[in-house]
């Protein structure tokens, strides 16, 4: 085996690896968010987050605009605080926007539904570190069933 042929084969090996890496990077992985693209963080307090997890999607009308960065418990009121990383592309949401925790399908993943509010003069845009005050908690199936049974008993 001449060293020239070895070099060519190793070169092909490298090219193949790059192609495979490119396939993974472009086709299999979500671009933009969380891999280096510009984001800003918003916070929202919920009474109950249900099955929401870090990295759950944040959607506006079905379009993903960001991801849940982290979930923690507010030490004062013991309410869950959800940090949302929103793509810098969408940085004009007004302060009156609301968020709710929704479920895709009956048993699907939970995600954060983002409802952009009305925008008139005097209402500022949401920026880095702002809290979204208008939140709707997750629907917990057990609670719903409980309420249903309770109302039946009436």
């Amino acid at each position: 085996m001449s060293s020239r042929k070895v070099e060519i084969m190793v070169g092909l090996f490298v090219v193949l690896t790059l192609a495979a890496g490119l396939l993974l990077a472009l086709k299999a992985v979500n671009q933009g968010m969380s891999n280096g693209a510009e984001t800003y963080t918003l916070y929202a307090k919920f009474d109950n987050i249900g099955g929401l997890k870090a990295r759950s999607a944040v959607k506006v009308g079905g379009v993903i605009v960001g991801r849940v960065d982290s979930i923690s418990l507010d030490p004062d009121g013991y309410t869950p605080v959800v940090a949302l990383k929103i793509s810098q592309e969408y940085n004009k949401f007004p302060e009156t926007s609301s968020v709710s925790i929704l479920t895709s399908g009956l048993l699907g993943e939970q995600y954060v539904g983002f409802q952009p509010g009305f925008s008139i003069d005097g209402i500022a845009d949401l920026g880095e570190g702002d809290y979204i005050s208008d939140t709707k908690s997750a629907l917990v199936l057990e609670d719903l069933i409980g309420q249903f049974l309770f109302s039946k008993n009436d």
Partner: peptide, 15 residues
């Protein structure tokens, strides 16, 4: 197949 894959695979965390 591709789009749901893209929304759940994260570059740092998975790859």
């Amino acid at each position: 197949y591709w789009s749901i894959m893209q929304s759940s695979v994260d570059w740092n965390e998975d790859v």
